[in-house]
Amino acid sequence: MKAVIRRHGQASAVAFVLLAFLSGCSTPPDKIILLPDPEGKVGAVIVHSATGQQTINKAYAGVDVTKGGAIEKTMDSQSTVETRYAELLAARPPRPMTFTIFFLFDSATDLAPESLATVKQLKAVLATWPAPQLVVVGHTDLAGSQEFDDGLSRRRAQTVAAFLVKQGIPAQQIETAARGKREPLVHTADGVPNRMNRRVVITVQ
């Protein structure tokens, strides 16, 4: 009886090795599939393998890449991709959301009057957000030197962070940052004051 089991075990082991060998010969390729981004735009991915390179720049287009590096182009439909990768796509984190608070000219402390309403909306979003983290980023218009604007945008971010804490948002959920004049909302010539650029953008991550 024991011998039979042993012989059976040996046969399984042989079968396993054989299977492993066979599957090694036909390892499925690595797949890359391009998706439209959440705003509907389609960017590009450049895939490099050991032997080649391929740019993918259409939604639901992709490549299969074999172990040897051979690249084969693929084209799927939206529904095929959404069905095949349903669980993977369902696991995506919520899209970070932004809220903007505006400032009066040259001020690091005087918030525009609509700020309170914005914070109310923000708090409604936070109520259901998983492990919310707020990144509070100060910006200036293009009036002033970079150095001055870095400082001003930092003070703006701190003002808004303090305002959020006062409105009941836990301080440990808030991180501040300052972009100075690097990211104007409205592009103007350097030195031009613009109300829309004097702002703090709060991103909920």
């Binding site: 390892t27 499925p28 390729p29 690595d30 797949k31 890359i32 599939i33 391009l34 998706l35 439209p36 981004d37 959440p38 735009k41 389609v42 960017g43 590009a44 991915v45 450049i46 895939v47 490099h48 393998s49 050991a50 993918i56 992709g62 890449v65 074999t66 172990k67 590096g69 991709v81 990768y85 993977l88």
Partner: peptide
């Protein structure tokens, strides 16, 4: 088998 360069976008990777 691959290295990907990303030009502002969304994509799926599945390893065979």
């Amino acid at each position: 088998t691959t290295t990907l360069g990303v030009r502002g976008t969304a994509f799926i990777i599945e390893v065979g």
